[in-house]
Design a protein around this nucleic acid. Structure first.
Length: 743
DNA sequence: CAATTCGGGATCTGC
DNA sequence: TCCCGAATTG
């Protein structure tokens, strides 16, 4: 019955069976923290007879939540009744439940930063355009810190009296729409709990065990929410267990507060601490590099990971001339290994900024290397998608000013900015369709508005309040992480996709974007189709619509990550940030240049955060790890000479192999590729001269033992490989597969 | 109100 | 380099 405990090490077992007090688990990368949490859930249910319904586990990404839920259920079926969700999706759920108390519409949707900017510009018309995005950022940060417009500590986010006023105006306007922004998903539940004892008691009664994953990336508001939710100061008896790693804190810029970990024991009295340092993911050589890097950070709790898997291969540092060579190197090595049977899916290419993915995409496309981009797919930021979503959101909540402005005159119906303002001012905080119907406007505009309202009414009447239920006889809840119940597809039944299809047709979006496609050669129409298809599992009703919107708004990467996506054989292209919690057999960290990674101008705490990000990247690798660094890179449309990333200097010499031409800074006493007094005039012969260490994609590491010109003037080298073999090459044709190796 | 053109600014990272 | 917004023009 408890054989799943046998696979745990001592510390893991202690963590799983710990009870009665709050617990902080300091879990290094790859130390099996997901296993600990999921096992703990199973153990509590099975051995301690804790009601699964009273267990709450929160994570930061939907992917992590899904995985956790799956694994917990695999250990104990009843874990299906537990709430395992992302922080934000839990918050959204809470707010729908207590919408009145929180002061929002039951049918709210979530505004992103663009939408926030629209609200700001309408709430403070005098504000110069340029300052809007700064204010938006500041407001977001304030909410992450748990601050309201009347808080005394607004200077924490660099806010003064003027900002307090701006924040207040924004809040007022936002509340009039009934919608929420991202920060509200945490802040409003916190405030609601704090100010409402009855709800608070309900929650304390409801949740007996609360677990939080990746606690190092929680912000102040989340910490405050956790305190209220658990009732730690009210003797609720709720058990709180958080798991985190201060070395992997990478979201300071959006309000994450490492001090939440450091101060956990003060906020939650009587906390016990358990450390997990046994690493089951990476080989020792990889962990050694990771440790070299992160030990340069001050202000860490400090721990050194111990590999359970043995020594392994040294990481490889590759110097390349340009970013095109970088892309080519990655393509080559992946293709070479693929020919030897290594699946594409074992590889991940990591980069600092999303913009860097472009080169890989185009090259891989041409080379027919299958790839999948994880994360900011930008899909939902596309114009046509935002249009369609605005329509859907507006049907859900007709107080949504931002959506209204977006769609009322698209395609053009003669309702310009002036008319829009009139309608919104008249109907602020009310149903904008009613307001629009009752207002007097110029002839052209009023005809347009009438048309718009007609479309709205037609669409609105398509949506029943509740799904017409045909009973499903499942004993366990089918709840999904983001919300509820995407059902099995029933061909005979209308789904939300049918609604969205109607939206695209009735509103003229299809027509409008079809025309755009012809002019600009874009694919907007098929994007709309893709959006439609993604709604097929949602039931045709208001609840289904809200769930669908939540799934979009609370997880930008959900589309394009089809169910079977993980099973397909593809190289992963991913930002370093997005790799949190993931692992790959072979990892290439690209763009290891000063200015790219770390980004230019990062100093002090910010530089330390970049370093932790590097640490996160390194510790994703199970077996093989590569760093690539270019001498030249196109940035801002200009070609720049680059210096190697300072982080590379933090790796101990000898703890990694070097390929390619080392920059001057890397040519120490042990350097080898710097014989400038060669007698050869042929640059190829000069590069591949006798004695040079090389690396070949198929044959591995070796040394050139002879180099001669043939009768036809071709330069031939003989290479003896580490493995014992000897081969002849024509370097002229091997520039990408036969690389000069350094130290 | 829409189409065109011109100029400045920008690029982090993301729930 | 490219994209977006403002200004200009129809």
């Amino acid at each position: 019955m408890t054989e799943y405990l046998d696979v745990l090490n001592k510390e893991q077992l202690d963590a799983v069976t710990h009870e009665g007090k709050s617990l902080l688990i300091l879990a290094g990368a790859g130390t099996g923290k997901t296993r600990v949490i999921t096992t703990k859930i199973a153990w509590l249910i099975q051995q301690k007879h804790v009601d699964p319904y009273s267990i709450l586990a929160v994570t930061f990404t939907k992917k992590a939540a899904n995985e956790m839920k799956e694994r917990a259920i695999a250990l104990e079926e009843k874990a299906a009744w537990s709430k395992i969700r992302t922080f934000h999706s839990w918050g959204a759920n809470f707010l729908r439940l207590y919408a009145d108390e929180a002061g929002v519409s039951k049918n709210f949707t979530v505004y992103d930063e663009d939408d926030m900017a629209t609200i700001v510009s309408k709430a403070i018309p005098s504000l110069p355009k340029k300052e809007i995005s700064q204010i938006v950022k500041k407001i977001s940060l304030a909410k992450d810190y748990g601050l309201t417009p009347t808080s005394k500590n607004l200077e924490l986010v660099g806010g003064d009296g003027v900002f307090a006023e701006q924040y207040a105006l924004y809040q007022e306007r936002l509340r009039s729409t009934g919608n929420v922004d991202f920060g509200d998903l945490i802040l409003l539940p916190y405030l609601t709990l704090k100010n409402n004892e009855a709800i608070r008691r309900d929650m304390h009664f409801r949740y007996r065990v609360i677990m939080v994953d990746e606690y190092q990336d929680s912000n102040i508001a989340q910490s405050l929410l956790l305190q209220e939710l658990s009732g730690v100061n009210e003797n609720s008896g709720t058990y709180v267990c958080v798991v985190g790693d201060d070395d992997q804190s990478i979201y300071r810029f959006r309000g994450a507060e490492v001090r939440n970990i450091l101060e956990f024991k003060n906020q939650f009295a009587g906390t016990d601490l358990i450390r997990l340092v046994q690493n089951y993911r990476s080989t020792q050589e990889i962990l050694y590099c990771a440790d070299c890097v992160v030990s340069n950070n001050a202000g860490r709790l400090g721990k050194t990971l111990v590999a359970a898997r043995g020594k392994g291969k040294k990481p490889t540092l590759v110097f390349l001339p340009t970013q095109d060579d970088e892309v080519q190197f990655c393509a080559d090595i992946i293709e070479q290994q693929h020919k030897k049977g290594v699946p594409y899916s074992e590889w991940a290419i990591l980069y600092r900024t999303n913009a860097q993915s472009l080169g890989f995409e185009t090259n891989f496309m041409r080379a027919k290397i299958p790839y999948a981009i994880v994360g900011t797919l930008k899909f939902y930021e596309r114009e046509e998608i935002k249009d369609a979503i605005a329509w859907i959101s507006f049907v859900a909540n007709p107080r949504d000013e931002v959506a209204f402005r977006r769609i009322v005159n698209k395609p053009v119906r003669g309702v310009g900015a002036a008319s829009q303002d009139k309608i919104v001012e008249a109907g602020l905080g009310q149903n904008l369709v009613s307001a629009a119907k009752n207002i007097k406007l110029p002839k052209k505009a009023s005809e347009g508005v009438a048309e718009f309202c007609k479309i709205f009414d037609e669409l609105n009447s398509m949506l029943p309040e509740e799904e017409v239920v045909s009973e499903v006889g499942a004993s366990l809840p089918q709840e999904e992480v983001t919300g509820s119940a995407p059902r099995a597809v029933d061909a005979n039944k209308l789904s939300l996709a049918d609604f969205i299809k109607e939206v695209c047709e009735k509103t003229g979006l299809n027509e409008f974007h079809e025309a755009q496609d012809e002019i600009a050669g874009t694919q907007k129409l098929s994007n709309l189709e893709e959006l439609t298809n993604s709604a097929v599992q949602y039931p045709l009703c208001r609840k289904g619509l809200l769930d669908f919107l939540d799934s979009i708004n609370l997880d930008r990467s959900s589309l394009g990550e089809e169910e079977d996506g993980a099973l397909q054989d593809r190289v992963t292209l991913i930002t370093l940030h997005n790799t949190k919690g993931l692992e790959y057999k072979r990892v290439i960290i690209t763009g290891m240049e000063y200015g790219v990674f770390p980004r230019e101008g990062k100093v002090g705490d910010d530089l330390e955060e970049e370093r932790r990000l590097f640490y996160v990247g390194i510790t994703r690798a199970q077996n093989e790890l590569y760093f690539t660094s270019c001498a030249m890179r196109r940035l801002y449309g200009r070609t720049n000479y680059m210096q190697p990333s300072p982080f590379l200097y933090e790796l101990e010499k000898g703890s990694y192999r070097v390929l390619g031409q080392q920059p001057f800074a890397f040519q120490g006493a042990a350097g080898s590729a710097s014989d400038s007094s060669s007698a050869y005039s042929d640059p190829i012969a000069k590069k591949y001269r006798k004695g040079v260490m090389v690396y070949h994609d198929d044959w591995g590491h070796g040394q050139i033992v002879s180099g001669d010109f043939t009768a036809d003037g071709e330069y031939v080298v003989t290479v003896n490989f580490e493995t014992g073999g000897s081969k002849k090459f024509l370097p002229k044709y091997q520039s990408s597969s036969l690389l000069v190796e350094g130290t």
